[in-house]
């Protein structure tokens, strides 16, 4: 029997590649973080994002970004740095409305 833990989601990771790349850069590029704070729209201008990804980032639509294939370990950096107006509390509320990719159950409704 093949033993490969976890639901593979390579198609999603590829679909959201540029969003994932942007989130990955945040830890390595303090200047990018500064520019995203000063003027998010302008800071994203050079990134080859789809119009939809750009809109979802600028409106902080975390659940939709996750649904499109952003990796949660990367996406959560938006909240850690409070980018696009998303606080940790906002992030928590929004991601909890998303269904888990790969079909595993989401958070119990404890709030």
């Amino acid at each position: 029997m093949a033993s490969s833990p976890g639901a593979s989601d390579i198609r999603g990771l590829r679909a959201a590649y540029t969003v994932n790349r942007l989130c990955h850069r945040l830890h390595r590029d303090p200047d990018l973080v500064r520019r995203l704070r000063e003027g998010p729209e302008r800071a994203l201008a050079d990134w080859p994002l789809t119009a939809e990804d750009r809109r979802l980032l600028l409106t902080g639509d975390i659940a939709a970004l996750y649904g499109r294939g952003a990796h949660p370990v990367l996406l959560v950096r938006i909240a850690a740095l409070s980018l696009f107006g998303v606080t940790a509390d906002d992030y928590s509320r929004r991601i909890r409305t998303a269904g888990r990719r790969g079909g595993a159950p989401r958070a119990p409704t404890d709030a």
């Binding site: 949660p72 370990v73 996406l75 509320r93 909890r96 958070a107 709030a111």
Partner: peptide, 13 residues
Amino acid sequence: LEVGGPAVHAGAT
């Protein structure tokens, strides 16, 4: 441990 996914605790990431 859920980091950043839908199964986070309310109010936490």
